[in-house]
């Protein structure tokens, strides 16, 4: 689908520079690192030198009696102050570039929830846990959360913004390199926090336009649609086998009696699966807490629901 390079690997200084602001952030970071290094050499080198130079030689050592020195003290207050002000001003200047939104930006809507990211484009196209943007084009993400606070972080673009329920927050970037880049959730949000990952694919404009028009399910069988939805949305918490993750494994579920937490049982048929996806708290499997799984009511269309049921039927 994409002419994507491999997932940009993290590097030890900073991740690969993938956006217009990344270079500015890295220059500032380099300045701060150098200043920090010099400060550490002065302080640490200074005390090591003094401690060794003036080590105790006898119990009758005479020591100097120096209470203060105004000039020296002014100098080591004022010079750090100036350096801190440079850091502050430079930081403000770069921050300004991050937070002043270009007017012509391409807008993508982002919804975070435990524990996945949904993306919605103007033409109605929706994706989960991955999205595609054109290179060298300003993109604005308008973000909200369905449950708790999440945070949207693309290390290679040096941008991050909390995603808060009940309000919209935004960030923007202009990608400068094609390829696929990691997205992390950086606000702790519970059991699946570290699995709440996504990928941004940066492609040439033409390729983006084609991608936008493509119906992702065209030509796929119901089973293949279901598998794709399952891997995007369900796999974080449900194993396709029988092992326990956050929720119960779904392997062999279909056609079997499921033991519920009130001691009753229910047949794992189409209606049970559909109800569990749309109203997850209606029936709770024995041994699992209620209120953990979010509802997918309004999130999945009929094709996707049928696909999921078909796929779960196929699991053994």
């Amino acid at each position: 689908m994409f002419s994507s390079t491999a997932q940009a690997a993290p590097r030890s200084f900073m991740p690969i520079q993938g956006s217009t602001v990344a270079g500015y952030v890295d220059s500032l970071y380099a300045f701060l690192l150098i200043a920090s290094f010099i400060a550490c050499v002065l302080v640490i080198g200074g005390f090591i030198y003094f401690a060794i130079r003036y080590r105790r030689r006898s119990e009758n050592d005479k020591t100097l009696y120096i209470t203060h020195n105004n000039t020296l003290e002014f100098a080591w207050s004022f010079i750090p102050f100036v350096i801190f002000m440079v850091a502050f001003g430079w930081g403000w200047w770069v921050y300004d570039k991050m937070r002043v939104f270009p007017e012509n930006a391409l807008e993508v809507h982002v919804t975070g929830y435990m524990w996945a990211w949904d993306f919605m484009y103007k033409n109605g196209k929706r994706t989960t846990n991955e999205f595609t943007v054109p290179v060298n084009t300003p993109v604005k993400l308008i973000m909200t959360s369905r449950d708790v606070i999440h945070s949207f972080f693309i290390p290679s673009f040096r941008v991050k913004q909390d995603v808060v329920p009940g309000r919209y927050s935004a960030l923007w970037f202009e990608a400068t390199k094609t390829g696929s880049f990691q997205v992390f959730c950086t606000e702790y949000c519970g059991t699946g926090h570290s699995a709440m990952l996504a990928t941004v694919h940066v492609v040439e404009t033409e390729e983006y336009e084609n991608w936008l028009q493509v119906d992702p399910y065209r030509g796929l069988s119901l089973l293949e649609v279901g598998q794709s939805v399952f891997e995007g949305r369900c796999l974080v918490c449900h194993s396709p086998g029988e092992d326990r993750k956050v929720g119960p494994g779904l392997g062999g579920l279909f056609g079997k009696q499921v033991l519920l937490d009130d001691g009753s049982t229910v047949l794992g048929d189409e209606n049970y699966i559909r109800e569990s996806i749309l109203y997850p708290n209606a029936k709770i499997t024995a041994g699992y807490p209620s209120g953990v799984m979010p509802t997918f009511l309004g999130q999945l269309d009929e094709t996707e629901l049928l696909g999921l049921i078909e796929y779960i039927k196929s699991l053994e």
Partner: peptide, 12 residues
């Protein structure tokens, strides 16, 4: 701490 107090690097 200064690197973190600098707002643009803090974002990362």
């Amino acid at each position: 701490g200064i690197i973190l107090a600098t707002i643009a690097t803090n974002v990362h």
